[in-house]
Design a protein around this nucleic acid. Sequence first.
DNA 1: CCATATTTGGTAATATCTACCAAACTGGAG
DNA 2: CTCCAGTTTGGTAGATATTACCAAATATGG
Lengths: 151, 151
Amino acid sequence: MVEEQDERILAELQKDGRATNQQLAETVGMSTSACWRRVRALEEAGVISGYSALVARERAGFATSAILHVSLERHDVKFVDEFVARVTQRREVLECFATTGDADYHLRVVVRDMDAYNRFLDEFMFRIPGIRHVRTNVILKEIKTGVALPF
Amino acid sequence: MVEEQDERILAELQKDGRATNQQLAETVGMSTSACWRRVRALEEAGVISGYSALVARERAGFATSAILHVSLERHDVKFVDEFVARVTQRREVLECFATTGDADYHLRVVVRDMDAYNRFLDEFMFRIPGIRHVRTNVILKEIKTGVALPF
DNA sequence: CCATATTTGGTAATATCTACCAAACTGGAG
DNA sequence: CTCCAGTTTGGTAGATATTACCAAATATGG
């Protein structure tokens, strides 16, 4: 089970995923070896599923992003599985959630420009079988893009 | 400007944010010192805005998440700034985007359970001045939660 | 309260980071 | 083409960090 000390480690590693074990041990208040073993355990238990550099979208040349509301025509496993498989594959789709509400799925898509977004729709999204409706909500401004769980 | 080699570095550091400089240099095919300097430059230029451990939401005890569509009553800077300030503050709100479409904002909120979500609405969201409408779309399933830009 | 299992801090060999150097490369100007 | 100044490169070595191991301390439950 994830407990008090682990949560401090997780919180800190979310803030700085490249903190050295020594820094980490100091900020959470334990010895380097104890700290190191807990981190390792969290990794092996899959609580920490990985580490990532956070790249500034615009500075890296991705000017355009959007949130898509997608509804499927029918909800056979066949269509659903196909949709999930394709969306998982496609790297422009950063996030995809099955949700309650009007749409079946919420997707966040990131591309270099509007042209690329148009191609994304034509060549990918509109060709997925069983799609009823796709509504694009262009992202005008990123107020916040966090990854850290609120421990 | 971000070029070819930098993109390979960014792609790799998105996949493994704790790759050692040696591994990284090898996979992108340059010397450790050249690689290290480029990474440092990307950090200082703010292209890499940070590093983070990716924590498995459910395993860390956050069972509930939702996507909120929020509309403001009026769009005075006063209300907008207040909304942005509060939402930025609040740690349960992982993401917030100003979008085109019916709603003004899309938020992703993560909490430990439905009870906490209810409190989040009552004690936080519904008390923000100038809110016209909040629609909750509970996340039934996370198909994909990526952070890596599609280089 | 005791016996056992788990977790802890310290240590030392190994691996890595990071600042520095001289050499190689780049791209204008003549 | 040739030269030169400005970058970028690879190598190196001292400082730092990682990681496996041990014995001591702490928690568990009968």
